[in-house]
């Protein structure tokens, strides 16, 4: 997902008798679905994990602007250009909301940015894949936003108030993102043979990276158990991935496109599709920085940040001067 492999610092979820009175009261509030707010007492590990998770989510939004932003200047019609621009702009907005939510935990946005640029904090693996053709705008909206929604909708109920509120706003604004992607795909498959070929190629390239977005199986992960007990993770990675496959396969069929998986088959017994796992070695390599676009993506963010320093400083300096002038008057 947008936050993958978040370390909770936990060695397993402790039983009720192992918790301090504060921790027990905290867990009881979470179990009662009472939101935790910034000034409330919280375990240090909860705070740290949330900073990691929300920060990673925010970074994914702003790095996620790049593969699509790539095509804004090349969009094929004025309407498509406006739609794509509005969508990529939303991603900047979502990054902004999430950074603000993280800031309520006692870390500044600039600090988070620096951690992204230094490589200390990660962003979602999916954005390290290149967008080669216009059909990729369709595939990204349909598959990547589709996968993100699977995770973001339940997160509206997450235990930390500012995070939950940011997710509510994000989900509301995001409702058109997946639809615009699917609409691009529909135009492509009903277009010329070359367009249809382009659409199939985009699905071929984005299918497995989209499955990777949910992260490796975490049914035995201590971090996952702890995050779920804290309600900052609402479902296991495998649950969400299965739900995504079940929803997406019929959508692909409707388009007349083939999912690039020979072993994909409907399983009557489980009521799910059986499908092939993505290549988890590739996933690890991408997370380590060896994806096709890691260097370009991080490079673009660092360039924007460093190139914008004089602009931010100039405006800050003026504000300070103006305040002094007002005070003197």
């Amino acid at each position: 997902m947008y936050a993958q492999n978040v370390d909770t610092g936990s060695k397993g979820v402790r039983g009720a008798d192992e918790l301090s009175p504060e921790e027990a009261a905290f867990q009881a509030r979470i179990d009662d679905n009472i939101k935790i707010e910034p000034k409330d007492w919280m375990p240090a590990a909860y705070r740290k994990t949330l900073i990691r998770q929300i920060g990673q989510h925010a970074h994914s939004e702003i790095v996620g602007q790049l593969p699509e932003g790539n095509w804004v200047t090349r969009a094929p019609t004025l309407e498509r250009k406006a739609i794509l621009l509005a969508k990529v702009q939303d991603e900047a907005g979502h990054g902004l909301y999430l950074y603000c939510a993280a800031e309520t935990l006692g870390i500044s946005r600039d600090e988070l940015m620096n951690k992204l640029h230094s490589g200390e904090m990660k962003y979602s693996s999916i954005f390290n894949y290149p967008t080669l053709t216009w059909a990729d705008m369709g595939a990204v909206g349909w598959l990547v936003d589709g996968a993100a929604i699977m995770n973001q909708v339940p997160l509206q109920r997450t235990s930390f108030g500012p995070y939950a509120r940011a997710m509510v706003r994000i989900c509301k604004e995001e409702s058109f993102h997946q639809r615009q992607g699917y609409s691009i795909m529909m135009s492509m498959v009903s277009g010329t043979p070359a367009q249809k070929e382009m659409a199939q190629d985009a699905l071929n390239r984005f299918w497995y990276p989209a499955l990777m977005m949910f992260g490796p199986s975490d049914k035995d992960s201590v971090h996952s158990d702890q995050s779920m007990a804290w309600k900052i993770k609402m479902n296991t990675n495998d649950e969400l991935r299965q739900r995504f496959v079940n929803e997406t396969v019929p959508q692909a069929h409707y388009l007349g496109l083939t999912i690039p998986d020979d072993d994909l088959v409907w399983n009557e017994e489980t009521g799910n599709y059986d499908f092939s796992q993505p290549d988890w070695d590739e996933f690890k390599a991408v997370l380590k920085g060896n994806g096709p676009c890691n260097r370009e993506r991080l490079g673009a963010r660092i360039k924007a940040w460093e190139g914008g320093e004089w602009f931010r400083d100039g405006l800050a300096a003026y504000a300070e001067k103006a305040a002094k002038r007002r005070a003197a008057a």
Binding site: I62, Q65, L66, G69, V72, T73, L78, E79, K81, A82, L85, A86, V88, Q89, A92, G93, G95, L96, Y99, A300, K303, A304, W305, G307, G308, E309, F311, R312
Partner: peptide
Amino acid sequence: LSEWCGHGPALEEDIALTNTALDLIGHTQ
């Protein structure tokens, strides 16, 4: 202006520049 989308010096400015770009594309139509 749309070339700046995703590359602005601050998130707030990135969003504002894009609003202007969107307005101008609307006028163009």
